[in-house]
Simulated scan of single mutants.
Amino acid sequence: MSDFEKIKQQISSKNLSQFYLLHGEEPFFIDRLVELFEKSVLLPEERDFNQVVLYGAEVSAKRIVEEAKQFPFGSPYRLVIVKEAQSLAKSDIEELENYLKNPNPGCVLVISAKGKKIDGRSSLVQLAKKKYVEFYSPKIKDYEMVNFIQQYLTQNGITANRQVCELIYEGVGTELSVLQNEVEKIKIYYGNSPIHLRPEDVEKHLGVSREFNSYELIDAIFNRDIAKALRIITFYKKNPKQHAPIGILAGIFNSFQQLYTLHVAGIMDKDSASEVLKIHPYRAGNFLSFKRNYSMEDCEFALLFCTNCDARLKGVDNANTEDFDVLFELVYRLINKYWM
């Protein structure tokens, strides 16, 4: 069971610690836990006298400790939540540490610091780990997102294959709050019916084209399908708000960089490729097949051309050519291997 699920279980069973330290770069899980504390620890009629929400940028540790030392009134707990605690001064942190050496047994103190990791060597983190509950929420890496989406859909009673999850990732990126909102809309749309998402459902609900997405573009380039690749770029040109040229270029560059890595490492099996590239074995298998069309030297030229294209998109040696026309030229040269 993950630390996130353990804390959820503690909240639901009311088997609570006197102190929770929630911190990390990914705000999604921290926000969900704080919301659970706010809505589930106390009954509605108990909250007026026993639930306090403070903000780190507006209060001192002295005020936090004063609130935490008060005993509950007509309730088994007093709940003090400090949001945006990353704004607290170092002296405030030290005062909180002094309180936690002898805390109020009737109070649950929740410190939430989003957007940053508190130094694991700090005495506050060490104290939380040793005597209380510490939860660190790291940013989910790009290569982990498709698997995370599949797990998240399953947790919400939705089945979907990997292609569907890749399309969803195309639409939401690494913004987990956006993913949550889209999943909630899908659940409302289907009601109590079993939900099995198909590519056309993603296109309908999220507006992500199953034919004109970045995965299809990369596959078209590496399979040297010039007609398909140019159709996708044309589609992007007609929808520039959803498809920024610099982002498209980054995807192409990263893909050639991955292929170059496989050549340099001499990797021939998809499990090893998956481990090195940090992608799903299915996708790694695709990259191994792409090696037949692009040698290591081809990849070197491609990376050089992508770098040149990046400069042109930023205005270097490019006075008149539109951004998407720069991409058209790049894709044409990559597929036809016009390296000179």
Results as ranks from 00 to 15, higher is better:
Arg283Leu: 10
Gln151Asn: 07
Gly285Leu: 15
Ser75Trp: 06
Leu36His: 10
Ala319Ser: 08
Val164His: 11
Ser12Leu: 10
Ser17Asp: 10
Glu216Ser: 06
Thr174Leu: 08
Phe324Arg: 01
Ile218Cys: 08
Lys337Pro: 04
Tyr136Lys: 11
Gly120Tyr: 00
Ile30Ala: 09
His23Gly: 13
Leu153Asp: 01
Val34Ala: 12
Ser272Lys: 11
Ser209Trp: 02
Leu230Asn: 04
Ala244Glu: 10
Ile232Val: 06
Ala250Thr: 11
Asn254Gly: 04
Leu79Cys: 13
Lys90Met: 12
Leu127Asn: 15
Glu97Gln: 07
Gln155Ser: 13
Lys131Asn: 12
Arg32Thr: 08
Lys116Asp: 11
Leu127Trp: 12
Cys299Leu: 00
Lys241Glu: 15
Ser112Ile: 05
Leu334Ile: 09
Gly315Gln: 01
Val52Leu: 08
Gly285His: 15
Leu327Gly: 02
Val264Phe: 02
Asp317Met: 11
Asn147His: 13
Lys228Glu: 13
Val80Pro: 01
Glu200Gln: 10
Ile118Tyr: 03
Asn254Ala: 02
Gln155His: 14
Val65Trp: 12
Asp119Phe: 02
Val82Ile: 11
Met1His: 11
Asn104Ile: 10
Leu100Cys: 08
Met145Gln: 10
Val108Arg: 15
Val52Asp: 08
Ser177Leu: 06
Phe28Lys: 13
Val183Lys: 00
Asn104Lys: 09
Gln9Leu: 13
Met340Ile: 12
Gln257Cys: 04
Val183Tyr: 00
Ile158Thr: 12
Gln258Lys: 13
Tyr190Met: 06
Tyr338Gln: 06
Asn213Gln: 04
Ser214Lys: 15
Ser12Glu: 09
Arg231Asp: 09
Leu327Arg: 10
Gly191Thr: 03
Glu175Ser: 08
Val316His: 02
Lys291Asn: 00
Pro245Gln: 07
Phe222Val: 03
Val53Ala: 07
Arg292Thr: 09
Leu167Glu: 06
Gly120Lys: 09
Lys114His: 08
Ile335Ser: 10
Glu38Ile: 03
Leu197Phe: 08
Phe305Leu: 12
Asn336Gln: 09
Asp201Trp: 00
Thr307Arg: 12
Leu230Trp: 00
Asn102Glu: 09
Phe28Ser: 13
Phe328Glu: 15
Tyr77His: 14
Lys278Asn: 02
Gln242Tyr: 06
Asn181Lys: 14
Ala220Met: 11
Val108Tyr: 05
Asn213Ser: 09
Glu322Arg: 14
Ile279Glu: 07
His196Pro: 08
Lys129Arg: 15
Gly191Pro: 03
Phe49Gln: 15
Pro27Tyr: 04
Lys139Ile: 02
Phe287Thr: 06
Asn254Ile: 03
Val331Glu: 07
Val52Gln: 05
Ser255Thr: 05
Ile248Asp: 12
Val108Met: 05
Ala302Thr: 00
Gly315Val: 01
Lys278Trp: 03
Ser255Arg: 14
Phe305Ala: 11
Gly266Lys: 10
Arg292Asn: 07
Phe290Pro: 13
Val133Phe: 02
Leu179Met: 12
Glu300Pro: 01
